[in-house]
Amino acid sequence: MKKLLNVLYVTQPDYYLKKEGRNIVVTLDGKRVARYPIHILRQIVCFNYMGVSPRLMKMCMEEQVALSFFTPYGKYCGRLLGASYGNIYTRKRQYELAASETSLDFVKNIIYAKSYNSRKILIRFKNDHKNAINYSAVQNAIDAIKDLMLKIQSAPDKDSVRGLEGLIARTYFAVLDELILKQKEDFYFRERSKRPPMDRFNALLSFMYALYTNNIAAALEGVGIDAYAGFFHTDRPGRVSMALDIIEEMRAYVIDKFCLSLVNLNRIGKVHFEIKENGACLLNEKGRDIVLKYWNKREQEEIFHPFTEEKIKLGLLPHVQAQLLNSYLRGDINAYPPFMIGG
Rank of each mutant, 00 (worst) to 15 (best):
K3A: 04
L5G: 14
L5C: 11
V7T: 11
R22T: 09
I24T: 07
V26D: 08
L28N: 03
G30D: 00
K31V: 08
R35I: 15
R35H: 14
P37E: 04
I38M: 15
I40A: 13
R42D: 13
R42V: 13
Q43L: 14
V45K: 08
M50A: 15
V52E: 01
V65Y: 07
F69C: 01
N87W: 07
Y95E: 14
A98G: 09
F106S: 01
I111G: 01
Y112N: 04
A113G: 07
K114A: 05
S115N: 06
I123D: 01
I123A: 00
F125N: 00
K126H: 11
K126F: 14
N131E: 13
N134D: 14
K146I: 09
M149E: 13
D159T: 12
R162Q: 09
L164M: 11
G166R: 14
T171R: 00
Y172H: 03
A174H: 12
V175I: 00
L179E: 02
L179R: 00
I180G: 07
Q183P: 15
D186P: 05
R190V: 11
R190N: 14
E191G: 07
R200G: 13
L205R: 06
S206Q: 14
F207N: 12
A210F: 03
A219P: 05
E221I: 07
D226G: 09
Y228P: 10
Y228G: 05
Y228E: 10
Y228D: 06
F231K: 01
T234I: 09
R236L: 09
R236P: 04
P237F: 00
R239F: 00
E249V: 02
V263K: 12
N264S: 15
F273P: 03
L283R: 13
K286C: 06
L292S: 08
Q300A: 12
E301H: 12
I303L: 10
F304N: 07
F304A: 06
E309S: 12
V320M: 01
Q323S: 05
N326S: 06
D332T: 15
